[in-house]
Nucleic acid binder design. Sequence first.
DNA 1: GCGCAAAAGTGATATACATCACACAGTTCC
DNA 2: GGAACTGTGTGATGTATATCACTTTTGCGC
Lengths: 206, 206
Amino acid sequence: MRFRKFSLNFNPEFNSMQAKEILKQHIAKSALLTDPEFDYFFSHFKFQSYTKGQTIITEGGKVECEYFVVEGCLKSFYINDDMKMFILQFAMPTWWASDYNALYSREKAMISVDCITNAEVLSLSNADREKLCREIHQVEHFFRWRTNKGYVAAQRRLLSHMNNDTKKRYEELMLQYPALYNMVPKHLIAAYLGVSRETLSRLHSS
Amino acid sequence: MRFRKFSLNFNPEFNSMQAKEILKQHIAKSALLTDPEFDYFFSHFKFQSYTKGQTIITEGGKVECEYFVVEGCLKSFYINDDMKMFILQFAMPTWWASDYNALYSREKAMISVDCITNAEVLSLSNADREKLCREIHQVEHFFRWRTNKGYVAAQRRLLSHMNNDTKKRYEELMLQYPALYNMVPKHLIAAYLGVSRETLSRLHSS
DNA sequence: GCGCAAAAGTGATATACATCACACAGTTCC
DNA sequence: GGAACTGTGTGATGTATATCACTTTTGCGC
């Protein structure tokens, strides 16, 4: 039997209503919104389907939105002058992705975002986020907590990068996201760890 | 003439009123508070003086506060099992420092904070921050923006670490904070860059 | 000013990782 | 089923950086 290694893991039945429920549960973890408040909040999101390989944010372009992943897997990445790619984040369901510097500072994107698998996302524009934050105190609260979580995670990853060798960082990543192993090609995992694909490959044999 | 390389850069006249003004200017950049609101906000801070070498947050201990630097320079750092130190942040005037994971999650500190020079800080407890965020919407707004800035900076630094060699990262740091060169010993700069002091030393000769 | 301790520089050697080159396996598409 | 492409494994070699050991310089208390 043929084993589809990079299975799409994609449910075509997915729709906006299920997405709404997933976002609702997600928000509820750190903010208290009444049902009407949440409905109003949700009305600012656009439900969007992307196919594997599609680009959502392009380096050098404008960034208008941030994206809440409902299904599938995105990556946000940077490509340097030697065309080498570095992955900042794999965005799995209930994760958010964007180029936050570009988004907040109205600058051109330095970071790209694209789809590793087919994906369903909810997009929210910068203008609408700021509007919602102004209008609903608890929304501002939610975004403060979410950003704080991201900040702590980024610091932790930086520390891990300074402190640990490739093998240790790889094991950490697999412990945190076991699903990645069969979902994304190894050279992308290498690009996340910041090593060459060859070095990553050799880890298994040692 | 003897040149005091690690000058204290310390103004004994500094007092709570000047600190208040510095904090006010800092907040005003991203939030709009009325004077009474700011006075109320400020009333939750404690003005504290520390001397060079004093520890503010100890690894393994409780973390109750975050610290706004008014004068001097702090460092937040992690020490690994081999007793090697990694510096997460140099905190200069108008910067904030704490172990944000421990502070938000009520866990024990993994990160320490101490004083590179004599320092004047304003401390704010976690409980008071949350209270103020609840009571004054603009305060929550301020902390969202501040945290977002930190998040973007941490991501940028992670990228720089994956992308650039030591020399480039050193030059970046010196460009961003020229004052550090004469303010902190070189082995601390090495600990920030994540390289050995020997390697940093050899950069100059090449 | 003297003496100790902390900081900084330097040489020799070891090592993790990058890079280049190539083989081959798996997937996709006609 | 075969071609083309993408992904993966592996050997040989080069290089940046760590580590260890030692010396020199600087800062600071007495």
